[in-house]
Write a protein that binds this DNA or RNA. Structure first.
Lengths: 241, 241
DNA sequence: TCGCGCATTTAATGTGCATTAGAACATCTG
DNA sequence: CAGATGTTCTAATGCACATTAAATGCGCGA
């Protein structure tokens, strides 16, 4: 009967760039990310999301067909954006950057994005273990794609013989990601600067991963540029496995 | 490890050691930890807890006055036990163990308890950021007490001049705990042995925290080179906060 | 100015779930 | 075996919240 539903889709829909409608949809997503990150999957009430987004709960159904669909999008787009951000920063590095320097950059951009920019990332991180099967699939896919970025970083370190031989690559990668992700749980701008945290994380990760011989701080240069725009010289072998 | 709780809220509380009643109460707590760790705070239904504990939901009210009280106990007792476990392992160490060796032991016992023994710990970890104020207090208190154990471990490393100078002690400590805690999110016994993970974590943490010069493996009685550090019993009061 | 589709609102509807009431069952004491 | 006390059940009660229905406001092209 009622078939006046806009062919809602992902973040695309060509013509609708800065449409008011598109902006409202975005506001709802942002609100959902905010609520989801502090209340958890089951605790995320549409009325709360609506309040943050400054509209009434039923209005959400004009943009999303269900609560789960809204949450699903927050979850996967959170990591998708994180991956995009980190990848851009890596791409901005000079072609000859060492594997450890690349890891440094990944550590910094991961932390910056997670703690400075995005509620989405914390929402995804905190609820990864709680979302039901239905929603999980797309999230897992994106999480794996982001994982691939790190898998490649670590693999490069192995290939360059700078990864500590006692480390299992997979475990090491997950432990590092855990250290970074967990920062969302405790870091508070009032108890220590983000730069301070980043410095510590870089040191910890670099000397933790690298073989003793190749320890010392390498080139502290290449202070990750802020603009994700410049598509510089990309790294060769993409998509590792 | 074995530490029967002094029934706090139940009915009367005589010297109930292995009482059937006490065991039922424990079963409910265990079930709640199990559900809480995978469904999250808001998603934890009393009917699910009851099902796991093999009884009907209203029976829970005989032992706990509300859902929140049950969850609160799971949350704080989770870390309380973790702390007890780690502390015991540390206490079993010979008096002369180096600060890095002590950290090694803490890493191992933390991971073992979290991944092998206890649903409580994962429940606490995953829900730390989602529980409402009301419940939070006691949890935070216990979390801080456990944090003190690590604060002391790291401080000892500083005193012994083995902590990498570029590291902010607080940030480093939280990053390490994050790496460990996060393991609950991804580690699966079928994709890699726990021993393997522990080995990697120890290596990563040890070489990540320590100053380059002091790399090698465990070594008994290898006190700091030139430090007037209080080499006496490490058991000084750490709390003070 | 009218009219028409998009956007959002107010007012139901229904279900799921914590919590309560009070009966039934079990176990222990004499 | 009585009956007292401890334990768990079945059957309400009531609220909170996702979702639906239907009405209203809004902007814009002729």
């Amino acid at each position: 009967m009622v078939d006046r539903k806009p062919a809602l889709a992902g973040p695309d829909l060509p013509g609708t760039a800065g449409t008011k409608s598109a902006r409202t949809r975005q506001r709802i997503l942002d609100a959902a990310a905010h609520v989801l990150s502090r209340r958890g999957y089951a605790g995320t009430r549409l009325t709360d999301v609506a309040e943050v987004a400054q509209l009434q709960a039923p209005a959400i159904y004009y943009y999303f067909s269900s609560r789960d669909e809204l949450i699903e999008e927050v979850m996967w787009s959170g990591i998708a954006h994180m991956r995009e951000h980190v990848r851009a920063q890596l791409a901005a590095l000079p072609a000859g950057a060492s594997s450890l320097d690349r890891i440094d950059v990944a550590v910094e951009s991961h932390l910056r994005y997670q703690l400075e920019i995005s509620d989405y990332t914390t929402a995804a991180i905190r609820n990864a273990g709680q979302i039901p099967e239905q929603i999980r699939l797309r999230y897992v896919t994106e999480a794996n794609r982001y994982g691939d970025v790190w898998r490649e970083l670590v693999q490069d370190a192995v290939d360059d013989r700078v990864l500590h031989p006692d480390l299992d690559p997979r475990a090491a990668r997950m432990l590092v990601l855990g250290a970074l992700n967990w920062a969302a749980e405790w870091w508070n701008p009032r108890r220590g600067s983000l730069d301070q945290l980043i410095r510590t994380a870089k040191t910890l990760v670099r000397s933790g991963l690298s073989t003793g011989s190749e320890a010392g701080e390498a080139s502290p240069a290449a202070p990750a540029p802020d603009t994700p725009a410049p598509a510089g010289p990309r790294r060769a072998g993409a998509a590792a496995r």
